[in-house]
Design a protein around this nucleic acid. Structure first.
Lengths: 243, 243
DNA sequence: CTTAACAGGTCAACGGTGTTGTCATAAGGT
DNA sequence: ACCTTATGACAACACCGTTGACCTGTTAAG
């Protein structure tokens, strides 16, 4: 039953739902995002989404082949929103840092969707545009093709992976999250110096550092390494390994 | 119904299953891990697990309150296994790379558990041991306290985040995973050079690079940056920003 | 203006899921 | 040998994604 979905361009007979709603792929994606935001990732099911839209669940299969298809559409919408807010300046390091922080912030703004979509390749318009833009930044900076792709891959995955990780953290029930903060203060803050010398010596820093995201620090380390790599390439000493 | 679970120590009447199996929390965790490895991540359901054990699904609720509880027990077991397999040598870069790769591999071997447990702080024995070990490696390498904590945080989160990201990828249904590989080959491999110059110029590399995990590359970049940072600290020029 | 085609909404059903209230029984202590 | 009770089994509940068949309003052609 794969001809159930009609490509958006060919749609014309917009018959309203029994409850008076006129469906569209856009409306479905927006509603799904709202649903995820308001009631958590588990709230996203075909049946609930149908109910929220005022339509029979099976109607959605006129717009998306299956749930996965819908997830990809949601992911692409998120990519689009992030990309539209980005203003590259020409300074490749600053631009990548800015984009990375925006991707991370975008994920945190839609934690549940981020967790569900971070690992998907959509192949849709917004994603393609993002790939093209980032590759452009790297190649203009001077990275040759293969190296640009490797850096691109690591950069994007790092932003997505940390976005999903930190999102999953904020998606925890409030009680569980506070319990985790407590663990750092009490458990790790009180270990004896003779049994756990390194933890005891840095306990003060652990308590303060571990409660915030490590992504900004990881991103800066990443950019440092990329700059180092570019310098090596320019010098002609192309050994990519760190030692 | 939370008193359904009896703490392991209090168990005494080990009544065998109708099919002759004597249940235990350990046996359940081991069977779950085996199930995940043999039949993929989505093969793990309470009902399937019951079937694999030769017991009624509801019996499992005598040992774990709910599925999440079971997942945490599995995760804890995984941390232990990873750490036990690690043999630090004294070369801090090699040791961190080895541990990072082991953490990543451990996550990939048990995708479902990795995804669910990556963002949790347990405060349990194995975790504490890991923190102490890694901090020790960094401080012996010469990083001062605060800097060691920052590097530690970024290192661990990066390993966990990539582990979860890549795990989520392998946890996809086979069809969806193959569809993603196709997207890189067809969609990205065929974009016109005038509309998408950078993608077109690197299409060959994209197709080959994007289907593998970027974690090894990201890890090497991370270690490169850490080495750079250490050199800066030794030289006394402590500006942590990449430009 | 009528009419016929068909896009698209609806209904009912299938086989799966996690979870729980209830019951039955074998193990263990006495 | 008996009694208690831990623990396994059963049946049921409310969900889930998905699909095949049906029905009906919209639209384009005549």
């Amino acid at each position: 039953m794969s001809d159930r979905v009609v490509p958006p361009a060919a749609r014309q007979r917009r018959r309203p739902t029994r409850q008076g709603v006129v469906l569209s792929a856009e409306l479905i994606v927006d509603t799904a995002l709202r649903l995820i935001e308001e009631h958590g990732a588990d709230a996203l099911s075909v049946r609930r989404l149908g109910r929220a839209l005022g339509a029979d669940p099976s109607s959605l299969y006129r717009y998306f082949r299956h749930t996965d298809d819908l997830m990809l559409a949601i992911a692409d919408e998120l990519i689009g929103r992030t990309l539209r807010s980005w203003r590259p300046t020409g300074d490749w390091i600053a631009d990548l840092r800015d984009l990375g922080l925006r991707m991370h912030a975008g994920a945190l703004a839609h934690p549940r969707a981020a967790v569900l979509s971070a690992h998907r390749v959509t192949g849709r318009a917004h994603e393609i545009q993002a790939v093209e833009s980032i590759l452009g930044v790297l190649r203009r900076a001077g990275f040759p093709g293969q190296e640009a792709v490797r850096i691109y891959h690591a950069f994007v995955d790092q932003a997505l992976a940390f976005g999903a990780l930190d999102s999953a953290g904020t998606a925890l029930p409030r009680a569980a999250r506070e319990a985790e903060a407590e663990v750092w203060r009490t458990t790790y803050g009180r270990l004896a110096a003779d049994s756990h010398p390194h933890i005891a010596a840095t306990a003060r820093h652990l308590v303060t550092t571990m409660r915030t995201s490590s992504y900004p620090a990881a991103l800066d380390l990443f950019l440092t390494a990329a700059r180092t790599r570019l310098a090596e390439l320019r010098a002609g000493t192309g050994h990519p390994r760190p030692h």
